[in-house]
Each structure stands twice: as C-alpha cells, then as structure tokens.
Design a protein around this nucleic acid. Structure first.
Lengths: 293, 293
DNA sequence: GCCAAATTCGTTCAAATCGTTCATTTTCTA
DNA sequence: TAGAAAATGAACGATTTGAACGAATTTGGC
C-alpha cells in the first residue's frame, strides 16, 4: 500500500539523508507531488524511475514492501536466466521476485526481461519436461509464480497517460496460455500504450465485440496453441477482414508456424516480445506524427 | 451523480487524512458548502479547481464514485459487491482494486471478500452472459483483473512462518479456472498455512508427484469443470487411496455436484471459501495440539 | 415520522515535515 | 597533490499532518 512515499521513507530505503532526498525533489530529479500544505509526496514508480537513471541503489527495499535484494545488482543476464529457471522449478517466489526486480533496477528493459528471463525459463522447463527431468506441476506452479511477478512489475511502472492510444488483445479460443498476453500488456504499458489484456481462451466472436466496442488503435493476438488450424484461419481471417483496415493487428506465438502465417494477414508478426515492442513503438511514433498534422 | 462529496471521500481520493481535508476546507483552500447541520460538502467541480490550482494531484480519482466503507454491515458489502461487479465488467482495475483494498482495510476477512465479492461477481457476470447482457471478453478480462487484485492482496499479508504446515493444491486436469485455487492459497496463507497453489489444468499424475515430493499436511482440489466424470472419479479415487490417509483432502467447486460427491472420499467438502477456511483452521488447531504431545 | 447505526463534527496533541543554514565529505580540476 | 566546486548530512524553529475522542448530524429501514 505504498502509492506515495514521504522523503523520510525514501531516505531510509536508499540509506541517504532526508536532506538529500528533499534536494533531489527540489531539483526535479525525482518527480514530486505536493500536499496542499506543501509536503512532498513521491510515487513509487517515480522513485523506481529515478533509481534506474541514477547510481543510487535501493539498499533496503523492504522499507517499501519490495523484495530484499542481495545487494549486488544483477547485471549478467545469462546467469540470472538460469537462476530464475531454477527458482521457478523450486517454486521459490522470493528468489524469482528478487532476480526480476534486480534486473529491472539494473536498467534492463522489461521486454528484454520477458524474452531472456521469462520466455527462456519456460522453454527450458518445457525441454526438461520432455526429458522427464521436470514435473508438470512444476511448470504450472511456475506459471502462477511468473504471473505474480509480472503483476508486481506492473505496479512499478507508471499508469498510462490519459491520451495514450488504446491497445487490446489476448489469447484466442482454445489457447489457455495467458502468460504471453500478460507480458504483452506489460511491455506495451511500459512504452506508454494504454494496453489491456483480456486474458486467454477468447472466442473470436467476443474478440470482434471487444474491438467493436473499444475501437483500439492496435490489437494483439497471442497464439500458443491451435486446436483446429483450418477453423482458426477462417475465424481469424473474418476478424481481420472486418477490422484489419482500421486496427493494427500484431500476432505472435509459437503455434503460428510459417504454413499458417502464409495463409493469414496481419500488420506485424512478432517472434518475441522485443519485436512486438519495436512494432508498437513505431506505431506510436507514426500516430504521434499523424496527430500533429 | 457525484455532485457533492464528503471529506472522507475526498481524503481517500487524494490519499491524505480526513483531518487534512477538513483543515483545507476551513482555510478556504477548497471551496466548501455546508449542510444545515454543519457537515462539509465539496462539489466535484470545486475539487477539480483545487487540484488544478495546487500542485496536488488527484491520486485515485476513481474513489470519488465509492461509498464510504468503514462499517461492517451487510449493506456495505452488498453495495461493494455490485460496484465491484460493474467495475469488473467495465475493466476498471483501479476501482476494483480500491473496493477490495477498502474492504480489507475495514477489517473484513479475506475469505468473506472472496465469497461475497469475488465469487458473487463472477456468478452475476455468468448470469448476465446467459441473458446476453455480458460479453465473454468481459468475463475473461474480469478474471485477469481479479487475479491482479488477489495478487496485490497477497502482498499485503505477511509471509507464512517458517514452521507453518504445508498445504498444496490446484485445479485438476481440464479445469482452466485458476481464480478459485488462487483464492484458496490466499486465504490459507492468511491463517498461517504455508499454502502453495500449483495453478490449473493439473493432471492427476502430477498431483500425485507433487504430494509425494512435498508431503503436505493438506491438499486442496478446486473443481469448476469436469470433462469426463467417470474418468475424474477414477483418477481422483486413485489419488485419495494413495495419500488420503496421511494428507487432509479438501475439495470444492461447482462441478462437484452431489452425485459425484457420493462416489468420492475426502476429508472436507467446501461450498465456499469460508468453509474451507474453517476446515483449515480446525486442522491447524488439531495438528498444533498434536505437535505439543 | 422515528429509531438505531453510521458518519461527520470540532478539538486536541504528538509526530512528521517544511525550509533554511552550516559544517563536513566527496568529486573534480589544474 | 592542493584547492575549488559540488554534494551531503545534521540541526533549528515553524508549520503541517494524522490519529484520537465524545458529541452532533445524517442515513437507511420500518
């Protein structure tokens, strides 16, 4: 429950003096709100932004309700990935939180974390399962855990601005894998889209209804599993025919292999989260320029 | 519809104390009108003006639509429930979050919130969908949203003590509904179990492996949907035969109708989260005493 | 219209924060 | 390395904040 922090709390968390925090606020290094009486209030997301762009470290994150760090910032992403995978397999949520937060504070982008930590971990776990080295419940429990960490990350990024363009999306009918679409939502919000994931197992008719009712600038579809390919192609094409002209369709997912891709249309196919981020960023710049004319 | 606001509502919207708001009204920083009895009423437009003139940002504008909820009456819960349902349908995550956190801070138990707010909301949404008054995407998006709020609640309760008894559980194969098992985990942790949900769609073989590897004191199974009843009964019975003697089996879910219940064994069947909480509490006391002997 | 419950009032008071100044430490530069 | 410049942390009285309390007012149900 730490939406806004006082300079004293921040000072304790960073182990610096209160005077310094106040000075940073006054220099506008840390975006600050004020009460009517003139007391400073610092949003947690603003503090995180500041930390990511300064040399200061969050020495005592527990003051802010954040996971305790090891102190050493995690900069080597490969080692982090394997540690994260192990933590996921063991169901060690503290460790998972810590690794991800450390990486985030070490200025790794969220999209990088999604691709090289989360996605990699689940690929590895899948491989282990094929070899009989991992149980199904470990993978499922890992999904739950990953979801929690993603949600926590979500609270650390600022809310989208009022005029942010809307993006909606999800995983289609028969696809129960909601991790991917949650990651997409997170990454898009990180680059100032007003992204809303509608979850998984979404029938195409309801996707159409959602697009019709909310008129987004962008629509994403995560496809991890397809039950009936012919059916999928037909339903998807119908959706694209109706909205593809006005809404930017971004699709991705391991089930969308080349054969299928050749039979459907889209504005962008994304192999990973970073690709999607690039596409969304481009779109953002384009519509931004457009709105200036 | 919200022409005039009470100081309490404004206080929560601005994340300051009620005292401060009252003081600002008295200092004429916020234009205020008074009822015949001398209670302050703040016009929404006056509040907006105040926010614009001062550097004070409206932290939680959505609160302005909320009823003041510090009481414990059923009335409050009912109103909160319907507001929560509406917010879920509209995908308004700030409002959902706020309603639940308010209730929690007003010392309503988490199990009550689960039953009377979350479960009720999804029942209502299901009914509306049957009448054609709600889209599937609204329900799915609501699930995502509810999950986020549950995860946030989870961060507010303390971590289980080192010596807390272990409970594991989840939703069985073919059951994709992970909200229920997440609620169970949350409530059990709230009463000091070391509860770990393994998510949904868990094959019985992997449930067996999980129990074997972790040796919990309790095991829960959430059953919202059964694909093949005969198959379910057989697999479940096998699981119970193997572990039922050492591990307390708690089962629940709308798919476990009476016919099925009569064909399976368990330590407890729970109609709702509060039942499960009672059962777990009883078990906790019993094992606590046992360990003293 | 009346009653009981819930909410708000007005007040007080301790704790926290403000802005400022100044000595000390760190960093930069010649 | 010496000295200037910048950043830090501690201290101060003045102001603001938040929590508490009994009393008064409002609210919702009958």
């Amino acid at each position: 429950m730490n939406e806004s922090l006082t300079p004293k709390q921040v000072a304790r968390a960073l182990q610096v003096s209160e005077s310094s925090v106040k000075r940073w606020c006054d220099k506008e290094i840390i975006p600050t709100r004020y009460t009517a009486g003139g007391h400073r209030r610092i949003a947690l997301s603003a503090l995180i932004d500041f930390l990511r762009s300064s040399k200061h470290e969050l020495v005592r994150p527990e003051v802010l309700g954040l996971p305790a760090t090891t102190g050493q910032t995690m900069r080597v992403i490969d080692r982090a990935a394997s540690q994260f995978t192990e933590a996921l397999l063991q169901g060690d949520d503290e460790q998972c939180r810590q690794i991800v937060l450390d990486l985030y504070l070490a200025e790794h982008s969220i999209s990088t974390i999604c691709d090289l930590i989360f996605a990699k971990a689940f690929t590895t776990i899948g491989d282990r399962w094929k070899c009989g080295d991992a149980e199904v419940y470990q993978e499922r429990r890992g999904c739950e855990l990953a979801m929690r960490v993603l949600h926590e990350l979500r609270t650390l990024i600022p809310a989208p601005p009022r005029d942010a363009p809307l993006a909606i999306g999800g995983a289609a009918e028969g696809d129960q894998y909601s991790l991917a679409t949650t990651m997409v939502e997170l990454v898009l919000r990180d680059i100032k889209w007003n992204a809303v994931s509608m979850g998984s197992n979404l029938p195409f008719e309801t996707l159409a209804a959602a697009i019709r009712q909310h008129q987004p600038k962008m629509f994403w579809l995560s496809v991890s599993h397809i039950k009936d390919e012919a059916q999928f192609i037909q339903s998807y094409s119908k959706l694209f025919d109706e909205f593809g002209a006005e809404v930017a369709f971004a699709v991705g997912g391991r089930a969308l292999h080349e054969q299928i891709r050749q039979q459907i249309q889209y504005a962008a196919f994304c192999d990973n989260i970073r690709h999607l981020e690039s596409f969304a960023q481009t779109l953002l710049s384009a519509t931004g320029k457009q709105s200036l004319t």
